[in-house]
Design a binder for these strands. Structure first.
Lengths: 139, 139
DNA sequence: CAGAATGGTTTCATTACGCAACTCAGTGGA
DNA sequence: TCCACTGAGTTGCGTAATGAAACCATTCTG
């Protein structure tokens, strides 16, 4: 099924590598829970949203949970879904750096004190910043 | 044109949020340079590969460069393309954690000394690890 | 120079996506 | 209780994207 079945990047892209899944996860992290909530935030077509919610649920990124007080069922991120946080953040930071013209306004990710989240950078165990030139894939 | 014009995540997903673009970038980081090289590594259809290489080039992630000794032109990552390193790494690490059965073999990212790259985690300026619960998007 | 390899393009069938209309169950107010 | 309303999808259908395979023009290579 995969070109390279042992590559984690390929598997991840196979699960969330489309136009909408990551935006659904983004909005779930930002508090979206209901069908219409997702639909209005993303602007996705309703049938596609239904399909993506099904797939994300089937793959264990989302789960349908009972709402507290007799309300309708809602979608919530599972632990695996929450764990995409670092992916969303790096995507966001790349976009901030490269997808906007100079001076063009865009939203910014801040921590609970309002401080801008500094760039996420992969490092080796001793803290040395890494790049594609200083890393390799071991099979 | 954009899904959400001010969200960096949406813009980034608009550029590379499909089944193949990220795999092309992954392979470029792993040394792929020629058309057939990309085609064989990813298994993508040739017409789609041509289209993606055009788009990635148009968006400034790849550039066509003259090869050293009168060889054919090749594709190389631009600085913006190289800067996707953190995105690829977080996708890879998520996949390692969640897209494989226990004990199922997969490739691993190592630094130049062969040490496994530790999990990338967003932090606030003081080094505190962050999650979706401790961050928010400021418009 | 002939043959092979490279880097695509074209054609056509299949699939995915997007929009609008429709269904259906569960509130919610009079 | 009755019935309108909202939320959560599903269905139908037209358009766009994708994939497989064949085809073509340069560029190497012997």
């Amino acid at each position: 099924m995969w070109t390279d079945p042992t590559c984690p990047v390929a598997r991840t892209v196979d699960l969330i590598g489309d136009r909408w899944s990551l935006l659904i996860v983004r909005d779930a992290m930002d508090g979206a829970r209901s069908f219409t909530d997702f639909q209005q935030r993303t602007g996705i077509a309703r049938n596609i949203l239904a399909d993506r919610l099904r797939k994300l649920t089937a793959h264990g990124l989302l789960a349908q949970v009972e709402a507290p007080s007799g309300k309708r069922r809602q979608y919530a991120l599972t632990a695996a879904g929450q764990d995409l946080f670092a992916v969303i953040v790096t995507l966001r930071q790349w976009g901030e750096r490269h997808a906007f013209e100079a001076g063009e306004p865009h939203s910014v990710l801040v921590d609970e004190h309002g401080a801008v989240v500094p760039p996420v950078v992969p490092t080796s165990p001793d803290g040395t910043p890494l790049s594609s030139g200083t890393t390799s894939v071991r099979k």
